[in-house]
Design a protein around this nucleic acid. Sequence first.
DNA 1: GTCTTTGCAAATCATTTGCATGGAA
DNA 2: TTCCATGCAAATGATTTGCAAAGAC
Lengths: 147, 147
Amino acid sequence: MAEQDNRYRERLLESGLKVTRQRLALLAAISQSETPLTAEELFMRLRRDFATLSLSTVYRALDTLCEKKMVSRSVLMDGGRAMFEIAPETHGHNLICTVCHKIVPIQGCPLRDYEDSLARSTGYVISGHKLEVYGVCPQCQSKSHAV
Amino acid sequence: MAEQDNRYRERLLESGLKVTRQRLALLAAISQSETPLTAEELFMRLRRDFATLSLSTVYRALDTLCEKKMVSRSVLMDGGRAMFEIAPETHGHNLICTVCHKIVPIQGCPLRDYEDSLARSTGYVISGHKLEVYGVCPQCQSKSHAV
DNA sequence: GTCTTTGCAAATCATTTGCATGGAA
DNA sequence: TTCCATGCAAATGATTTGCAAAGAC
């Protein structure tokens, strides 16, 4: 825990950012969650032991951390609010259950080769992509059978 | 034009929706655009020859038409506002220029086989996905060279 | 005539911004 | 000490909702 804390401390400094309690707490909270969280969710979690924290600080810190690639932002199907997760070192995507909204990472990305062929066929210089896959997880499948 | 109008008329009726001027105008406007449009953009286009139209009608009609699969909604990278396009009969995705924000459709989808293998490896029943690819279009590439 | 759809205005939700204070380097 | 970061409150932007009037079937 303290080691991880120090890793974040270093990365903040490397990025030219100041090490603040709120940023460290944010990074700790995001990294402790297995699924991406909304700004509001993070705010509520941190509020427990950080009474004076402000929601706009959460938004500002998330913006900054996204710029520095320490955190990444994804968008859910409904289009409502943004979700945040620790930027994974290996590029990948999420698989989202449309029933319970559980989010699990998919390891690997099926689009590397595709991007190359797309670049060739369109003349675009491809810079990236956003992919989310939707489905029903095994647990929710068995629940619906049980009814 | 009148033929297309009639096709939409039918599809509305089939879906159990009433055929209204505003819905027909909306469908016409969306189908006449080569790129997806925001609700606001549609509103402004329709306002030209439809002075009393209300923005909330546009939102409501778009919601309804998305439910009935006549229109589809996509999300831009920045996460701001939703964009709408006529639901394509063949599943495909968009390629978005990060400089001029031009949006062009990509024919074909690289993920069909991938979804099958993902279903096998995860136990999920895959229902769909959202994919957007980002890059710089040939025009914007040459413009930046020119500088 | 009945039930849906619309227009308008007000409400809501997520996110952003201005500004003075507080805190890290 | 010098800026960057934070807290608070107010602003913004996109989208939604309540309600009465208008329109489609």
